[in-house]
């Protein structure tokens, strides 16, 4: 059986100036949590938006393969895509205010999603909305359904977004930083809810996050992006135990752990910034910052396999 989501060699550019995604490949299986991590600006959100065909104006995607449940998304027209979006494949956006309409109440936005895709009465839709708000830990759902987005705290908005994405029981959920605005106790509650949905519905989850604690605790597989490329991908335990790419190694070294912070020392970081990468860029995107870089890194860098299911993009031997 084919994977739930299969992305092969995805490329996204903006107006011929910026290459935001450069040949990224990843798959999400039914019931799998696949986490996507990487430096700010490396192309995680653009990858997600390209999959959903929601790129901003000027954005252009190509791919060798882009399938959902075996169906070719590249061949689907706008109406076909609109039928899937919010329905079988749902997305939680990084900035909740960009996808909540300030002019409508939470209740009308949540029920609208469901009534667009399913033949249900307003009553049924409201009940489902209230039930889901309860499941993501919002008390007094009746009160919240009647409120406008600006009347909610950041964390409440984020939970509304999560509940809204679940309205139509999606097969695939793409969640872009879904819990960054939440305190750690609510975060734990939502992660447990997602895990339960996964068991009950076989939900596939593509989760974009900066929180390596979340990755370690819930991901089955992790892909690390850098400058538009997936530079390493492995099963979670394998990646944490034996990272191969120098960027992954650097990233894992900078995770701050509470209870062990020292104020007299700066937080660990990877010096330098990501280069501007346009069309025609060649070689390893990390070479300006890599302590192992040599002259060969300025040319095509090989894909290597460290172990079955553990691939990375670097000249260094496993």
């Amino acid at each position: 059986m084919s994977a739930l989501l299969d992305v092969e060699r995805l490329e996204v550019g903006f107006g011929g100036r910026t290459s935001a995604v450069r040949g990224a490949s990843l798959t999400v299986e039914r019931g799998e949590t696949h986490c996507l991590v990487g430096e700010s600006g490396c192309g995680k959100s653009v990858t997600a938006l390209a999959i959903m065909n929601l790129l901003a104006r000027g954005g252009h995607r190509t791919a060798q393969r882009l399938t959902f449940q075996g169906d070719d998304l590249l061949k689907l027209d706008d109406r076909g895509m609109a039928r899937l979006r919010g329905n079988a494949m749902a997305m939680i956006f990084q900035e909740p205010m960009t996808s909540l309409n300030p002019a409508y109440t939470i209740g009308s936005q949540m029920t609208e999603v469901m009534r667009r895709h399913k033949k249900v009465s307003q009553r049924v839709a409201i009940d489902r909305a209230a039930d889901l708000l309860g499941q993501v830990g919002i008390t007094a759902p009746g009160l919240r359904l009647g409120q406008f987005p600006h009347q909610l705290s950041g964390g409440l908005r984020q939970r509304v977004m999560i509940a809204m994405a679940l309205m139509c029981e999606p097969q695939l959920l793409i969640a872009d930083e879904p819990t960054t605005a939440l305190d750690v106790t609510v975060q734990a509650q939502i992660l447990r809810l997602l895990a339960q949905l996964q068991r009950d519905l076989g939900l596939g989850l593509l989760l974009i996050t900066h929180d390596l604690g979340i990755v370690a605790r819930i991901a089955h597989r992790v892909s690390v992006m850098y400058a538009g490329e997936v530079v390493e991908s492995a099963a979670t335990a394998q990646l944490f135990a034996d990272p191969k790419h120098p960027y992954t190694q650097g990233l894992l070294r900078c995770v701050p752990v509470p209870g062990k912070q020292r104020q007299d020392e700066p937080l660990g970081s990877i010096p330098g910034t990501v280069p501007r990468i346009g069309p025609g860029f060649e070689g390893c995107g990390f070479r300006d910052r890599c302590t192992f870089a040599d002259a060969t890194c300025a040319h095509a860098v090989p894909h290597q396999t460290a172990a079955p299911g553990h691939d990375y993009l670097c000249r260094l031997a496993p």
Partner: peptide
């Protein structure tokens, strides 16, 4: 509730 980066421990 803090999730330290230790694989396999799940969400408390």
């Amino acid at each position: 509730s803090v999730l330290t980066p230790e694989p396999g421990l799940g969400v408390p």
